[in-house]
Amino acid sequence: MRTLILLASLLLPLQAQIVRENIEWLDVWMPDTNVHALPRVLLIGDSITRGYGKQVEALLKDKAYVARLATSKSLGDPALLDQVSLVLKEQAFDVIHFNNGMHGDGYSEEAYAAALPELLATLRRLAPKARIVWATTTDVRVKEHLDQVAPKTGRMIKRNELAAAFAKQEGLPVDDLFEVIKDHPDYHVPDGVHFNAKGYEALAAQVAAAVAKVLP
């Protein structure tokens, strides 16, 4: 009994570090699971990845099968690793295009960066043949005032810098989605976070090009 109490006391600080949003969600799309003529690509990200995912799939038609894993989970939350592991155990992927950063406001940028090594280790362990591309997180505009950059963008820039430095250290190519949209408030919808058709078209073209460069 004393041992159980001691273990519980040790786990409490770890559990207290897990920050969850009021609404959590997971969206997985895995087409062409029973055919194997083309390379298989996995796009990992959030609702923005979900927004451009189908267009990337169309742009890479006849070149690759494109799946996606979109989630509200952030680096720093161990559940993200569980979700990624679930999908990687379903299929073998040749390319993984990964973005994360918009969610997880409750985690500091330092905590965010500290979770990168374990994530990469999980990707490499469960998809040992996959070529991994890191994608930067897009900016945020003030709701209903898209000409103004929201304060949260500063956090996205810091996370992007930390992730890019880690990617360079690990020899991973970086797909700079932030650069694609940072000067285009016209790409955003009124919420300041998501994108209109023109914005998603630009992001999809960028992602498809980045993936095409590393297709086997």
Rank of each mutant, 00 (worst) to 15 (best):
R2K: 13
T3A: 14
I5K: 11
L6K: 15
L7G: 11
L7K: 11
P13C: 15
A16T: 05
V19K: 15
R20I: 02
N22C: 04
D27C: 05
D27I: 03
V28S: 06
P31F: 05
V35W: 00
H36Q: 11
V41E: 10
L42A: 08
I44K: 05
G45D: 11
D46G: 02
D46S: 03
I48E: 07
G51H: 10
Q55K: 14
Q55W: 02
E57G: 02
A58S: 12
A58M: 07
L59M: 09
D62N: 13
A67T: 05
A67N: 14
T71L: 00
T71I: 08
T71Y: 05
S72Y: 03
S74F: 00
D77C: 14
L80C: 05
D82P: 07
S85V: 06
V95D: 09
I96S: 10
F98D: 09
N99P: 05
N99F: 01
M102V: 15
D105T: 13
A113C: 08
P117T: 10
R124A: 02
R125P: 00
A130C: 07
R131F: 09
R131C: 13
I132T: 04
A135R: 05
T136N: 07
T138L: 10
D139F: 04
V140T: 09
K143A: 08
E144A: 13
Q148C: 01
A150L: 02
A150I: 04
P151S: 02
M156C: 04
N160T: 14
N160L: 02
A163F: 15
A165Y: 04
F166K: 03
F166S: 09
F166V: 06
Q169W: 13
Q169F: 07
E170Y: 03
L172K: 09
L172R: 14
V174L: 12
V174P: 05
E179I: 07
P185F: 08
D186Y: 05
D186C: 11
H188W: 10
D191P: 03
F195C: 01
A197P: 01
K198C: 05
A202Y: 03
A205F: 03
A208P: 06
K213Q: 13
V214W: 10
V214K: 06
L215N: 01
L215K: 11
